[in-house]
């Protein structure tokens, strides 16, 4: 198992390098004098000169890339001009917030999506199935930012069940209950879309599995229908559900950008949008590379989980 994890980690290196190349190339697209463009409104002569030195913009593109990469490997992602602090510090701090939000939403969507999918498949064409199908459809059709706004309106403004926005109360203690109160609405909102997708996929994976011969064997053994569905069918269906969960994690992470804006959540997505609007390119670059790298690592974890579930995968 350790060998397998190591192997997967090693195979992630080219992917990570590819990500840096892509980000680097996109940034190289910026027209005009890069330093001025990157700095935008912060383009004082000193800043331009410093950035030119930092980026080694007098060098060739390839040299620039390796200097940038070398700095990042050493933990130097550059300095944000708008915030005047190291990019990495800012990104890590903000990523924390995103992790709490997206992580909760991911767990919610995985648990409820799979349960809804199983119930839907088990009662195919029944009322429960139809209801779940409809809710799922609604979930994947509603823009998450609009849903968030409506949830604020209903649950925070009208019913006053939850705070309107933010991660912590402005005054008062910062304990777990305060966090949960602030987290509930955005996490649910973020989870809705992904839950729909997971439910849909789980339903079809279950329908696929329920027709397999080993399900008939389980029934022939006299296993109770509940056991057939939840032990036999779901276990086998998980083999095709888990990779989708990995992909969904990317969607949850992506959706977090909107939710962070709507709910004023201090996360990396809001940071990136702010940075783009302020043309704080180094912060964008660093943030994108950092989050993408985390996502790649997460997907390795998904693969490992998959290999634990399915003994047929050679490890």
């Amino acid at each position: 198992m350790t060998g397998y994890i190591l192997k997967r980690l090693l195979s992630a290196i080219p992917v990570l390098l590819g990500i840096t190349v892509i980000v680097f190339l996109i940034m190289a697209l910026i027209p005009g004098d890069p330093a001025t463009a990157i700095l935008g409104s912060y383009a004082t002569p000193e800043n331009v000169e410093k950035l030119n030195r930092d980026l080694g913009l007098d060098k060739t593109l390839v040299q620039q890339y390796f200097i940038w990469l070398g700095n990042m490997v050493q933990g130097d992602f550059g300095t944000s001009f708008a915030l005047n602090r190291p990019v990495l510090d800012e990104v890590i701090e903000r990523f924390n917030g995103t992790l709490i939000l997206a992580g909760t939403a991911f767990v919610l969507c995985a648990v409820f999506g799979v349960i809804a999918g199983v119930l839907s498949a088990a009662n195919q064409y029944g009322w429960g199935d139809k209801a779940i199908t409809f809710v799922v459809l609604l979930g994947i059709s509603i823009p998450s930012f609009f849903l968030g706004m409506m949830m604020i309106l209903l649950f925070a403004v009208n019913l006053r069940w939850f705070p309107v926005s933010g991660m912590w109360p402005i005054y008062g203690t910062r304990d777990i209950w305060a966090l949960l109160a602030h987290l509930t609405l955005p996490a649910i909102c973020l989870a809705v879309v992904a839950t729909g997708v997971v439910a849909r996929l789980s339903r079809s994976a279950m329908l696929e599995v329920l027709r397999q011969d080993f399900i008939r064997t389980a029934r022939a053994k006299g296993v109770h229908e509940r056991g057939v569905i939840w032990r036999h069918a779901l276990r086998a269906a998980m083999v095709s559900i888990i990779p989708v969960l990995g992909i969904q994690a990317g969607f949850v992470l992506s959706g977090a950008v909107y939710i962070e804006i709507v709910f004023q959540w201090p996360g990396v997505g809001r940071m990136l949008v702010d940075a783009i609007l302020k043309r704080d390119i180094l912060l964008v670059q660093g943030g994108v590379v950092f989050v993408a790298a985390c996502y790649v690592l997460f997907n390795i974890a998904v693969d490992v989980a998959q290999s634990l579930l399915d003994p047929r995968i050679k490890t």
Partner: peptide, 25 residues
Amino acid sequence: MRGVDMLMAFPYILLALAIVAALGP
């Protein structure tokens, strides 16, 4: 396909944001 896989390794919005960041809103 290597390139495609690489692009798919991004959570999609990061890529979109990076492109918008480079081209401008």
